[in-house]
Structures are given as structure tokens and as C-alpha cells.
Design a binder for these strands. Structure first.
Length: 485
RNA sequence: GGGCCGUUAGCUCAGCCGGUAGAGCACCGGCCUUUUAAGCCGGGUGUCGCAGGUUCGAAUCCUGCACGGCUCACCA
């Protein structure tokens, strides 16, 4: 007989005997960790604890079981003397690993020194019908781990810590920004024009409105509308959706922090960003230096700063302006064995070379500032050079973590940039920015000078939890659906 | 989308120069009142990812497909 059927049989018998295998509540007095931390005060006292039975060790007329609650494991001692014959037989007959139980008993320490609850009463709170994964090796099959994250969490307790840490990271960011007077807002996920980034959107349809809507690729244009409306410090931490490839650093839905600060330029945002990142790291990690694989990453501010042009020329050993000659640029690609699958435009070539020759080398947080205007349709031109914009990105361990700029607030300039993006789109560049006339209109009412910032929360969490795949820091990462039988 | 690798019991895995499936844990039965990957005795519970092909015979060889991982491409 299959294990599940055996348990179904027990379930039936329990019901016949008048027990409820799916109880309504249990009033526990302590969690596992509280029992252990307060052992000195609790020794000999009666407590009520509850949790999932994760292992059982039978010794005839006495047994040990280990239960687990969210705070950790706790050993329970069950002896026929203290539990009574009836309750002990009930335990032996009906309690399986995986079940949730409530225990009343006194706290003591075993011969081997383990803090344990000596049970006077044990009751079943929830019957588990499916057997637990193996207790020693856990679940290693990553497909099962992601599809059935609940099993991963049960079998691999360390996984809980990743997500507790993720929660703490986000909380710390919120606390930091709130303390500076930032207001958290929520802007539309469903947008009629997907803007604020260059990416392919998901398209959906609203029946009542009888129109297409797009899942947002960024909240940027809405947050800047709020700056027009009078907000001076706003942020949003929420999901973006991009209909693009999946990889160890890309999930179709991912979490982004975007913030906007009125009257600031990108230099001020630079300082804000390095203070934010480094103080989050310090408060989570108790040190600016974190271990990451074989490497150590040092978040102590100030971060290294290097201009796009400077690092580009250093790595390519060529004058940047020569790449404006597309012939030269393509020769360079050929010489360096870099494949370009996109259209051979200045923007794409530069982007490709940056990715191949520059980006991958950064380990410690590095600020790359002043980008070519062609790559940045929403950023303000440099005050002394129209070919460049006031924008910076922060790279950590070869991964882009942050992107920021002095926000373009000249509606006429913004209109021109949109128009040139539209031209690219008409030429077949699917990732070009959409034209958003309502946003232009908003800018025409006047947006004060503003600095903006985006931080990829998942990627930042990867760095802080020492994980190489974004799927390890997203509870339910996107996988292809499996045909159900 | 390309390349490489993987998919066998509930879990972790072995078996793969073709001969009809195995271990540990889990589970079931028995013994055991301080164990903790408890122990001792007994028990194998399976659509070998799916579909074809080759063969007397396929978990094993071949082809296709599905799902996953890594990687390249794409892309914040």
C-alpha cells in the first residue's frame, strides 16, 4: 500500500474516533527559539509548543520527536509514564512525520544536553497526507525546488534564510528612505503606453475598456509625473515586467526600487546611492565587506568612480570618437571577435563593446558615469557636452545593479528624443522607447530639476546572499508550465 | 533559438560496452524508556521523463519530443 493511502486510512480512523485531523487553533506559549533562549527560566516549567514533526525516534515505551516551527527545531520527549498509555498509543499509531502537532509539557535537558520538552499531552493539529522529502539530503532537484518551493522550504531550511534576508534588505531600504522623508507610492502596473525603459512589454487586453494594456516595464514616467505634481521625494518598490529572455540574472517579473529627488542632479544621487547601498549592507551584514563566492566585495563608500569614456578607452585602447565611424567600429568588433547580432548602429556597437570589454571586470561597486546620449533617451544632456548625458550606473561583480540620471525635464528635448526613438522603432528596433505625448504634456507644465535612481532589488539580494542565480532569490521564479496529468 | 549536461522508488543516487532494476534515507511489521542521519530483525513499494526505432530481448543503443540546469545569443 502506498504511503499516502496508509495515511488516508489513518485519517479515516481518526475521524471515526471523533478526532479532528484538521484542528482550528492551538495556543502556544513559546516558540522553539524562545524555549532555547529562556531555558534557565523555563526549566521545569510547563509550556505549550507547536510545529511540524520532522523526525521521529522510537524507543519502545518512550520516543523522541523533533518538531519545527518558523524559529527552528525543538526536541520533544514522549514517554508512556508522563504521557499516559492512551495518548502514547495515539501518538504511535496516528502521528507521522509531516504532521503538525501541539505539545504541552515541561522543559528539561537530556543527558546529551539538548533542551527538550517532556510531553504531558500531545495533540494532532493537522494531518499530513504526503510523505516529506528525505531529511538528510533535502531536495536537490532545482526544478522541484522552484516549482514546489514549499517543499524546498521544508527540506532545505537555509532557503528560508535567503528570503528572510531579502525581506530585511527591503525593509532596511524603506526605513532608510523613509527616514530621509521619501514618500512611498504605487503607480500603475497596467499602462497604455509602456515607458521608462527600453524593453519588450507583455501585452494584455482590458475587456470593458476594449483596449490593449501593457504590463509596465518601469514606473519611471509615472513617478516623474508625481514630481510635476509637487512630490519632491518619492519612491516605489515593486514589480516590473519585461518580455525578454530568462537567465541567471533575468526573470520576466523582477523587483525594482525607483526613487526621484527634486532639485537634485545625478551627482547628488550618486552620493545618495552609495550611502543607501553601503548602509544597507552594513546593517544587514555588520560589515562593509561581504563574502561572495571566492571573492570579497567591499561596499565602503565612496565607491570607485570612472567615466564611461575613460573606462571604455582604457579597455579598448582606442579613442572613443573613432567608434562614431561605423566602419571603424565594425572592424574593431571583428578584430576583437565580438559578435554583433543587432543592427550595426553606433549605439548597439558601443553597448556591445561595453558589455564584452568593460562590464564583466567590475567586482567592487563601481560607478560608471556620463553615458553617450544615444543610449539614454530620458537623461539630461551634460551641461558642457551635448553628446553625453548625466547618467551613471553601478556595477557589482559584473552585474548592473543601479541606473540613475539627471532627469530630462525639457519637454522639447524630450519630444525630440522620443521622436528619434520612434524612428529606431520604425526601423525595426523593438526595444526602442515608445512615444508618450501625455508625458510630454506633463513636462510642459514644468518638472523641477530632478535626480532619479533605479536599483534592481533581486540582483542586489543575489550579491548579499551569495547566490549566482536570480531564481534563488525569487520565491516562485518563472518556469515553463508543465502539462498536468 | 544554438551548444553541452540531466530526467531511474516519496527523497538522494547507483546501474548505461543490451539479458528484464538496486542501495541509503523514508515507509510497513516486530524488539527496545535519554535518542538525535538512534539501533537490531524482516519487508522493495517502480509507467527507468514521453513517443517511436533497431534487436530474440532496451533503463542501457538510435531518432524525435517534453521539462530542467549551465552556457552562447537576445536582453537591464
Amino acid at each position: 500500500m502506498e504511503e499516502r493511502e496508509i495515511r488516508l486510512q489513518k485519517l479515516k480512523e481518526l475521524k471515526e474516533k471523533g478526532y479532528n485531523p484538521f484542528e482550528y487553533r492551538f495556543d502556544r506559549t513559546h516558540t522553539s527559539i524562545e524555549i532555547k533562549k529562556s531555558f534557565n527560566e523555563l526549566e521545569g516549567k510547563e509550556v505549550k509548543v507547536s510545529g511540524r514533526v520532522i523526525s521521529e525516534r522510537f524507543h519502545g515505551k518512550a520516543s523522541f520527536i523533533t518538531i519545527r516551527d518558523f524559529t527552528g527545531n525543538l526536541q520533544i520527549y514522549l514517554s508512556i509514564n508522563n504521557l499516559g498509555e492512551e495518548n502514547y498509543e495515539f501518538f504511535k499509531k496516528f502521528i507521522d512525520t509531516g504532521d503538525f502537532v501541539g505539545v504541552t509539557g515541561t522543559v528539561f535537558k537530556t543527558h546529551t544536553g539538548e533542551i527538550t520538552v517532556d510531553a504531558k499531552k500531545l495533540s494532532l493539529l493537522t494531518k499530513s497526507l504526503s510523505p516529506l522529502p528525505e531529511k538528510y539530503h533535502g531536495i536537490k532537484d532545482v526544478e522541484v525546488r522552484y516549482r514546489k518551493r514549499y517543499l524546498d522550504l521544508i527540506a532545505n531550511p537555509d532557503v528560508i534564510n535567503i528570503f528572510v534576508k531579502r525581506s530585511l534588505i527591503i525593509k532596511t531600504i524603506r526605513d532608510y528612505l523613509n527616514s530621509l522623508g521619501f514618500i512611498e507610492v504605487e503607480t500603475p502596473m497596467l499602462q497604455s503606453i509602456p515607458g521608462g525603459a527600453t524593453a519588450k512589454p507583455f501585452i494584455t487586453f482590458h475587456n470593458a475598456l476594449n483596449q490593449n494594456l501593457y504590463l509596465r516595464i518601469a514606473p519611471e514616467l509615472y513617478l516623474k509625473r508625481l514630481i510635476v505634481g509637487g512630490f519632491e521625494k518619492v519612491y516605489e518598490i515593486n514589480r516590473n515586467f519585461r518580455n525578454e529572455g530568462i537567465s541567471t540574472i533575468h526573470n520576466p517579473e523582477f523587483t525594482m526600487l525607483e526613487l526621484y529627488l527634486a532639485y537634485a542632479d545625478y551627482k547628488e544621487i550618486m552620493v545618495l546611492t552609495e550611502n543607501l547601498l553601503s548602509s544597507v549592507v552594513f546593517s544587514i551584514n555588520n560589515s562593509y565587506v561581504i563574502k561572495n563566492g571566492e571573492d570579497e566585495i567591499n561596499f565602503e563608500p565612496p565607491f570607485k568612480r570612472v567615466s564611461f569614456r575613460e573606462i571604455f578607452e582604457e579597455k579598448t585602447k582606442e579613442n572613443f570618437d573613432r567608434f562614431r565611424d561605423i566602419g571603424f567600429a565594425l572592424d574593431f568588433l571583428k578584430k576583437e571577435n565580438i559578435e554583433l547580432t543587432r543592427k550595426p548602429t553606433f549605439k548597439n556597437v558601443i553597448d556591445e563593446i561595453f558589455k564584452e570589454k568593460v562590464e564583466k571586470d567590475f567586482l567592487n561597486p563601481t560607478i560608471v558615469y556620463d553615458f553617450p546620449i544615444e543610449m539614454s533617451p530620458l537623461a539630461k544632456k551634460k551641461r558642457d557636452d551635448e553628446k553625453w548625458v548625466e547618467r551613471f550606473e553601478i556595477f557589482i561583480k559584473g552585474i548592473e545593479i543601479a541606473n540613475a540620471f539627471s532627469e530630462l525635464n525639457d519637454p522639447l528635448d524630450q519630444k525630440e528624443r522620443f521622436l528619434s526613438e520612434v524612428k529606431e522603432k520604425e526601423k525595426g528596433d523593438e526595444e526602442s522607447h515608445y512615444f508618450d505625448s501625455d508625458y510630454i504634456e506633463a513636462l510642459e507644465y514644468g518638472m523641477p530639476p530632478t535626480g532619479g535612481l533605479g536599483i534592481g532589488i533581486d540582483r542586489f539580494t543575489m550579491i548579499l546572499t551569495d547566490k549566482d542565480s536570480i531564481r534563488e532569490v525569487i520565491l516562485f521564479p518563472q518556469l515553463r508550465s508543465k502539462e498536468e496529468d
